[in-house]
C-alpha cells in the first residue's frame, strides 16, 4: 500500500455531545474526524471544551445516528400543533385560586 492510499482513507466522523456544568443533559455541539473513539474523545476535549464548557463528553459515530427525514416533517410534527389542550394555558383557572 502506498503512502497516498493510506492517507486518503477517510477518517471516520464523530458527533460530539457535551454536558455543561449546569447539570443539563448532554447537548450536540459539533462533529470531528478521528480514527477511533478514544482519539475522538481526546480531540473533542481539545476542540470543544477549551473554556470550561463541559464536565462530560459523549462521542458517537455519525454513521450510528438515524435521523428523521426532513420530508416527513409535516407528517411527524404537524399533528402536535393542533393539540393545544396539551398545554397548561388551555385550561382556565379563576384568578382567585392564585398561581397554579
Amino acid at each position: 500500500m502506498t503512502d497516498k492510499t493510506m492517507t486518503e482513507k477517510t477518517m471516520p466522523l464523530w458527533e460530539v455531545f457535551i454536558r455543561s456544568r449546569t447539570g443539563l443533559s448532554h447537548r450536540h455541539c459539533g462533529s470531528l474526524h478521528a480514527p477511533d473513539a478514544e482519539m475522538a474523545l481526546q480531540a473533542a476535549r481539545d476542540v470543544y471544551t477549551r473554556r470550561g464548557e463541559g464536565l462530560s463528553i459523549w462521542v458517537v459515530p455519525s454513521s450510528a445516528i438515524t435521523a428523521s427525514d426532513p420530508q416527513d416533517k409535516d407528517a411527524l410534527f404537524e399533528p402536535t400543533a393542533s393539540k393545544i389542550y396539551r398545554h397548561p394555558t388551555f385550561y382556565e383557572v379563576p384568578e382567585e385560586v392564585g398561581h397554579m
Binding site: M6, P35, D36
Partner: peptide, 16 residues
C-alpha cells in the same frame, strides 16, 4: 503529518 494520520488509522484498525 501524514505518518501520524496513517499510524492512528492503523492503530485503530489493529485494535478493532
Amino acid at each position: 503529518g501524514a505518518w501520524v494520520r496513517e499510524a492512528a488509522l492503523a492503530h485503530a484498525e489493529k485494535r478493532a
